[in-house]
Design a protein around this nucleic acid. Structure first.
Length: 358
DNA sequence: AAGCTAGACAACCGCGTTCCG
DNA sequence: TCGGAACGCGGTTGTCTAGCT
């Protein structure tokens, strides 16, 4: 295909926009509306390509855009949606009035991704790094002496470094695994990434549009519930959405009864993991763990709150108080998750260290 | 005060999709 | 049905600024 002349950068200005240029765009749009952007530069008297004009309008000049900081509710929405549909920024942005895909993408890349990494959660898979390391270890005799970790991504590396410092372990802990386990991991990582991308984006495992919209709807409703406490909390399982026969209704058989009883108000960092981080590989052991988990959840339910059957404000507040944090409170959603980091390591004492020291 | 670095965000690039004659 | 133009999207790069040495 022949590229339009505007892309050839012939005598066309690039870089940051001036107020004068912005004014020209605004004047043109107010007079003629949006559309036919290739004609806009000429009509508006701008030495820019139409594509650049459109971008300036959609990302900055549109009157409905918000230019203030992201709220904790917006942060929560982004993380939830990203865990469900991946980096579909335009879809995510559609759920956040006044935000553009560029806004969301930049915010994710500069803030949210990093913070999740520091929590020990892979921002791509939404799994704990330790599980990823463990997964690597289960493949190809990783635990054999002389095997190495490969192209662990930047987030994983930084998270390991972060944890090493936290635990006052020598910083060479990461260097050790990095140097000892590197090559055999590389192929595995690439394979996993391919699978992941297929799940999250396109290809044979992709979510169809309906599933995506259902996911968004459910997540939106969940978010509204945490804010307004107005409706029963839907629970969304990515595994459901990925299943060809999936239904995102709460009657999905894939939703365990224990999980169904879990309320988003009772939010914890666990909610942002795609699956149980330390589920044993052995199916029989998985059953045992699942059974124990169900008992534990049932026990917790009795001790905490009758979540489903009440919208009782006091009970909800008590729950929030008990958990110490929630997106309902004024503090940042991610800060809330960070606050629960000690809980995370209490739950999974072998997190990271397991992979670091064999 | 100057130089360096990291963070934030605006803008660009390339590719896929949609529209339309 | 086909091909070109326009549009939309996600990844990447560039620029500015604040903080640190």
């Amino acid at each position: 295909m022949v590229r339009p002349p505007c892309c050839d950068k012939l005598n066309l200005k690039r870089g940051l926009w001036t107020e004068e240029e912005d004014a020209k765009i605004l004047a043109h749009v107010s007079k003629h509306g949006t559309g036919n952007w290739t004609a806009v530069p000429k009509k508006a008297g701008l030495k820019r390509c139409g594509k650049s004009c459109r971008l300036r309008w959609t990302n900055y000049l549109r009157p409905d855009l918000k230019h203030d900081n992201f709220t904790p509710q917006e942060e929560e929405m982004i993380v939830r949606l990203h865990s469900a549909i991946g980096s579909r920024w335009s879809i995510i942005a559609q759920q956040l009035p006044g935000r553009t895909d560029n806004d969301v993408k930049n915010y994710w890349n500069t803030k949210l991704r990093k913070r999740l990494s520091e929590m020990g959660i892979d921002p791509v898979t939404h799994k704990p790094f330790s599980q990823i390391l463990a997964d690597y270890g289960n493949i190809g005799g990783l635990r054999q002496p002389g095997t190495r970790i490969g192209s662990l991504n930047k987030d994983l590396k930084s998270a390991v470094m972060f944890k090493s410092e936290l635990c006052q372990s020598p910083s060479q802990a990461f260097q050790n695994i990095n140097s000892q386990l590197m090559p055999s991991i590389m192929a595995t990582q690439e394979a996993n990434q391919d699978t992941l991308l297929n799940y999250n984006h396109t290809g044979s495992h992709s979510l169809d549009l309906l599933a995506e919209l259902q996911a968004i709807k459910l997540i939106t409703e969940a978010s509204n519930y945490t804010k307004n406490k107005t409706a029963p909390p839907p629970i969304i399982f990515v595994e459901d959405l990925l299943s060809p026969s999936s239904s995102s209704s709460s009657s999905s058989p894939a939703c365990s009864s224990a999980a169904q009883e879990k309320s988003p108000i009772d939010f914890s960092w666990h909610d942002f993991l795609l699956e149980d981080a330390f589920l044993p590989a052995d199916p029989h052991e998985q059953e045992v763990v699942a059974e124990n988990s169900s008992k534990e959840l049932a026990s917790q339910k009795q001790n905490i709150i009758p979540q489903r059957e009440t919208n009782n404000e006091a009970a909800v507040q008590e729950c929030i108080k008990a958990k110490g944090t929630s997106s309902v409170s004024g503090i940042s959603f991610l800060e809330a998750m960070l606050d629960q980091e000690p809980e995370m390591f209490l739950d999974f004492p072998n997190l990271l260290e397991e992979s670091l020291y064999y």
